[in-house]
Simulated assay, not measured.
Amino acid sequence: MPTNIEDLELDEPPNVEPYEVLAVEKTATQDQIKTAYRKAALKWHPGAHLAKPEDKDAAHTKFQEVALAYAVLGDPRRRTRYDNTGRTDDSLDIDDDIFNWGDFYRAQFANAVTEATISSFTTDYKGSEEERDALLQAYTKYKGDMDKIYQQVMVSNPAVDEDRFRGILNEAIEKEEITPQRNKARSEDFLDNLAEKYGATASSKKKGKKRAQSPEEPPEEAFEKTAKRKTKKSKA
């Protein structure tokens, strides 16, 4: 999958439902549309995509859909045309403004994911309810597999977010928002993988193993408390 602008090969603009692609209501303001686009672009841009290499082709396809949705909804005139016709292909060329899909896409590809946009998004996203919801959903979906969870939760970094994520997950288990997952991978394996990825030394790995368990394996107290609550409910 090419991640350089010069290597891009584009087909015709994809046929999409712009509001669905950007996950916004038809009443969304232009500022809300811009914010939704930046979020979607950061998630699906092939150059920033956190999934496995083989998933980058899918990311490229998705990013084209995101770019096309923004081309329509990001311009008030094109948006009005689309709202009236329901067709993206009829909404791109407006009056004397001839839309060039290749030029537009290359511009979005080059500028959608910059240091400034990533920094701004990271500041707003980390610690938000949206991030928390994504973490809890990923934890349940991937049964506590933290490698997959970090791939799913945007702009997450195990070297930075491990303790914070563990706290969020344990709190959610206490509130019975999620069910504790007994992942087969031990916390030592998680820390070893973490050290390998981020170049930690052997001594730091040993030190890390003495820490509390990772979110892959919530504390036994969480399991016991959950079990006791379920027992009480069944007796009630």
Results as ranks from 00 to 15, higher is better:
F121I: 02
I94V: 14
L50W: 15
G102Y: 00
V24C: 05
R164S: 09
Q30T: 09
D145N: 15
T123W: 07
T122A: 10
A159M: 13
K210D: 08
S156C: 10
D7P: 04
E9N: 00
D124F: 09
G167H: 09
G208K: 02
E17R: 01
S203G: 01
E174Q: 12
I149T: 11
R186D: 07
Q30W: 00
E65N: 06
P158W: 10
S128E: 09
A236L: 11
T114A: 05
Y198S: 00
D189F: 14
K148C: 03
Q213K: 05
T80E: 15
S203L: 07
G127H: 09
T140A: 13
D31V: 06
K175S: 13
E6D: 01
A40R: 10
N100Q: 01
Y82K: 11
V160M: 12
G167L: 04
P14W: 02
R182V: 11
V155T: 13
K175F: 02
N15C: 00
W44C: 02
R211Y: 07
E54A: 06
E129T: 08
I33W: 04
E216K: 05
I178P: 07
K62I: 00
T201V: 06
G167S: 08
G167K: 11
L22C: 03
R78E: 03
K43W: 06
I178N: 03
I173R: 06
E176K: 10
P215W: 07
K126T: 12
K235Y: 04
R77G: 03
D7Q: 04
D7I: 01
T80W: 14
V72M: 08
F63K: 06
E20F: 11
D147S: 11
A138M: 13
E115V: 09
E188A: 00
T85F: 12
F190P: 01
N183R: 15
D133A: 15
W44N: 12
I178K: 03
W101K: 10
R132W: 06
T231E: 15
I5W: 00
D147M: 12
I5V: 10
D95N: 14
D133I: 15
E131R: 13
D147T: 10
V72Y: 10
K197G: 03
G102K: 04
E12M: 08
S204E: 02
L92T: 09
